[in-house]
Simulated scan of single mutants.
Amino acid sequence: MGKLRRTVAVVDDDASLRRSVGRLLNAYGFAAVEYASAEAFLNRNPGPAVECLVLDIDLKGMSGIQLQRKLKEEGSKLPVIFITALEDPRLKIMAERAGCIAYLQKPYAGSALIAAINKALGL
């Protein structure tokens, strides 16, 4: 038996970007689970334990930063990597204050995302 695949959740309302991140993660040996919104992530069925969260900041409904704050309030230690297409230095500061492992601006290199996930998981 091979080693267990680590599960990474991708929350992004852009379906094509979500799929491409999922494919990238699968190519690097991670199990990707995809969600179109913060609410969908919060209401997910308990399945494989998510070990890292790749989270878009600018979501319809609850924002990525609001989701990160809610998870922290609930005592979650889930490492978060924020991704965004927005060029706003204040968002980066807010994301870092919310406690993210990395903050990547779209378009970012796939290798940068994989490096951030490896760091988050202590690999």
Rank of each mutant, 00 (worst) to 15 (best):
64 G>H: 00
47 G>F: 10
84 T>H: 01
12 D>R: 03
73 E>H: 08
92 K>A: 04
122 G>R: 09
30 F>I: 08
60 K>C: 08
82 F>D: 00
78 L>H: 01
13 D>Q: 12
101 I>C: 10
112 A>S: 14
114 I>W: 01
116 A>S: 04
68 Q>H: 02
97 R>K: 14
63 S>Y: 00
44 R>T: 11
59 L>W: 05
95 A>C: 06
98 A>D: 07
77 K>V: 08
109 A>T: 03
73 E>L: 14
51 E>I: 07
120 A>N: 12
2 G>A: 15
82 F>I: 00
12 D>N: 13
11 V>N: 09
120 A>C: 07
14 D>I: 15
78 L>M: 12
45 N>Y: 05
122 G>V: 09
46 P>S: 06
41 F>S: 04
64 G>D: 02
104 L>P: 08
114 I>K: 11
11 V>I: 13
36 A>F: 05
46 P>Q: 13
100 C>N: 05
40 A>G: 13
109 A>V: 03
51 E>K: 13
53 L>R: 03
33 V>G: 03
101 I>Y: 03
79 P>V: 02
37 S>V: 13
61 G>I: 04
41 F>Q: 12
56 D>W: 00
89 P>Q: 11
80 V>S: 02
43 N>T: 08
106 K>Q: 04
50 V>Q: 03
81 I>A: 02
56 D>K: 01
85 A>M: 01
79 P>K: 06
82 F>T: 00
27 A>W: 11
64 G>M: 00
65 I>G: 04
16 S>I: 13
89 P>W: 01
57 I>V: 15
86 L>A: 14
2 G>I: 14
15 A>V: 15
60 K>F: 04
59 L>G: 05
19 R>E: 12
2 G>S: 15
96 E>A: 09
54 V>I: 10
30 F>V: 07
82 F>Q: 02
87 E>S: 07
44 R>C: 01
44 R>H: 11
84 T>R: 02
39 E>R: 08
43 N>V: 04
122 G>K: 11
31 A>W: 10
115 A>Y: 03
52 C>G: 12
76 S>Y: 00
17 L>M: 15
92 K>T: 00
60 K>W: 00
25 L>I: 12
20 S>F: 04
49 A>W: 05
91 L>C: 06
106 K>P: 12
91 L>M: 14
3 K>E: 13
46 P>I: 07
73 E>R: 13
37 S>I: 03
47 G>A: 14
3 K>L: 14
62 M>T: 13
38 A>E: 07
36 A>G: 15
25 L>F: 01
53 L>Q: 09
104 L>T: 04
59 L>T: 09
51 E>G: 06
14 D>C: 12
3 K>A: 08
117 I>G: 05
4 L>Y: 06
52 C>T: 14
66 Q>R: 05
